[in-house]
Design a protein around this nucleic acid. Structure first.
Lengths: 338, 338
DNA sequence: ATGAAAGCGCTAACAA
DNA sequence: TTGTTAGCGCTTTCAT
């Protein structure tokens, strides 16, 4: 175990004060170039590394940003995180990532832990369950910037980065209608979350705009877990009116649907057209290719990261902004062709 | 901005010493239940939260574990991370995650940053480029535990968690042979990395064991990026001996191969059988279903996390262990059926 | 251009 | 059971 060397050690070695060493190391203007060089040299020679614990304590900041996501292992989420990490790392920050596993309880614990560990800001995408804001007031009351992305809270005081899910849901549905579908099933995630409820809104609006009345039976609230595809298949087979289009709020689940439907003898897109959501890699692999909504995860991550950094640097003030909406895009592929 | 309350504030309020407050808060045995209750109450009432910066400084540890991965946005990696996060969070640690983006340069910077920020341990999966160990000696020399997973270094002093890639490569190849393939192409990642070089070894061994001589032309070193499938297609079409089997070191890339080959008129598995690696979600979606090697990412993450925690707690000593090898499994699906 | 010294908030050894 | 006090290593104000 190599004993750690501090600025005091260096100051003794160099016969200068600790303050000078500190300044030298931090490139303070009032230190002569010569002294700086000596300090730098000695630091390198003795393997000095700054003790961030002490720096954090004095400055009361950690250069660390907390993230809470529902789960790490999702194509979309990992893409978002990749974007965040990239911009945040570039400016010397680190990302502390934790997952709520869709549990409000764990989300609360995570929020508390991250608060405790002194993150300078928090980025959150909410769990399925979360229905109140209480675990975040510790942040706002301490003026720790808070930003929600993707799965957000409908509160005016929350700064958010997301896409226009309602419009996207509308476009997806309308695309199916334009392709000739008249009895469209919508497979949704939990309506508690904005992303799903808004897509659902868009779906209904598109129906209405095209004079198709919404049928309760054509709506399925699920947890979008491909392992639970059976229920959906049963629903489709048992529906009184033949379903000729499906709008699924996730590509993974949509791909599973295509797979199962094909197995059951349905022809896609002739019998049933399917459109997904996200533009995951899987949408290009499944046969037929899955039409979908391109959801710019990487960009969302970058934007969330950039916004929080800009705010921390005092360049912009999030409080004046309510939401940043990213551009989505309808991707037409074989699964919805005429 | 709510002024932060310290143990000194509480000690004044309660007319006890700061030490008592500290002890009370930390449930020290020598503090009376009554005093503890008083302290807890006051803490809650005044919204006290412990200042981790000070604790870290005093204890010289951060309860934080650093992770460096090649990229966050990969199915496999995000699964590993999900496993890690779960076990590590449960015992009160946090994960600081950074990505090298396959660059040795960035990996070095990340390693330094994480060292600086005072992680208690480091978990690493190496970038494609990395060829030397230098950026990790800062850790070993400071006795900061270091663990490599998946993409590791072939050094005796490195503690690693991985699967037996050679055996897995062997099994994948032999499976193709058993299914009747005689001219098998192997599409690999960069041989610099153990995971790919060992699978390649396994491939060659399986050929040899079955009296098939290895052809240089049947080996393709790539970066496994599905976007660069063209080169592979060209190779297959131009090969003098008809290729009847492909062993791809990644499911994503294998799925893309199936997709492209089918488009070009090849029948899978009749003309060419394909086997992938990882057992990603996509392997079940592509048509025909992709045979593959099940690679227990989540378990690998959990194991890496558990090992490092056990080591930090002094329960096991990593230095006595060299490698933990996880069980893999051949998954036979349609893409290799006779 | 450099130094002295206080302070960041907590823990723990030693005393009482 | 509780208190006193000396750090942990760095930054920064005020002197020089």
């Amino acid at each position: 175990m190599q004993k750690k060397v501090t600025i005091y050690d260096l100051s003794k070695i160099l016969n200068v004060s600790p303050a000078t060493v500190s300044r030298g190391l931090n490139d303070h203007p009032s230190i002569s170039a010569k002294t700086k060089k000596r300090i730098a040299l000695a630091a390198k020679k003795h393997g000095y590394i700054t003790n961030k614990f002490a720096v954090n304590l004095t400055k009361q900041k950690s250069n660390t940003i907390g993230v809470i996501v529902p789960r790490l292992n999702s194509y979309f989420m990992s893409t978002v995180l990749a974007g965040m990490e990239q911009v945040i790392n570039k400016v010397g920050y680190n990302l502390i990532i934790s997952q709520s596993l869709e549990s409000e309880e764990k989300e609360k614990i995570n929020a508390k832990t991250l608060l405790n560990s002194g993150v300078d800001a928090l980025l959150v995408s909410l769990s399925y369950e979360t229905s109140n804001y209480d675990h975040f007031i510790d942040y706002t009351s301490r003026n720790i910037p808070l930003l929600f992305f993707d799965r957000v809270l409908n509160l005016p005081e929350c700064y958010t980065v997301l896409i226009d899910n309602k419009a996207a849901g509308y476009e997806a549905t309308e695309h199916l209608i334009h392709q000739g579908c008249t009895n469209i099933l919508h497979i949704s995630g939990h309506l508690k979350r904005n992303v799903y409820s808004e897509r659902f809104e868009g779906y209904k609006n598109a129906l209405q705009a095209n004079n198709i009345s919404f049928q309760e039976a054509n709506f399925l609230e699920t947890d979008l877990n491909p392992k639970k595809i059976d229920r959906v298949m049963k629903h489709i087979k048992n529906s009184t009116n033949k379903i000729d289009g499906i709008f699924v709020s996730s590509d993974n689940f949509a791909a599973s649907c295509i797979k199962e439907l094909t197995k059951e003898g349905y022809r896609i897109p002739e019998d049933i057209k399917v459109i997904g959501f996200n533009n995951d890699f899987v949408s290009e692999i499944v046969s037929p290719n899955l039409s979908t909504i391109d959801y710019p995860g990487f960009k969302m991550g970058m934007l969330a990261g950039e916004s929080i950094i800009a705010h921390l640097n005092g360049n912009i003030n999030l409080e004046s902004i309510n939401a940043i909406t990213l551009r989505h895009k309808l991707i037409k592929r074989e699964s919805t062709s005429k």
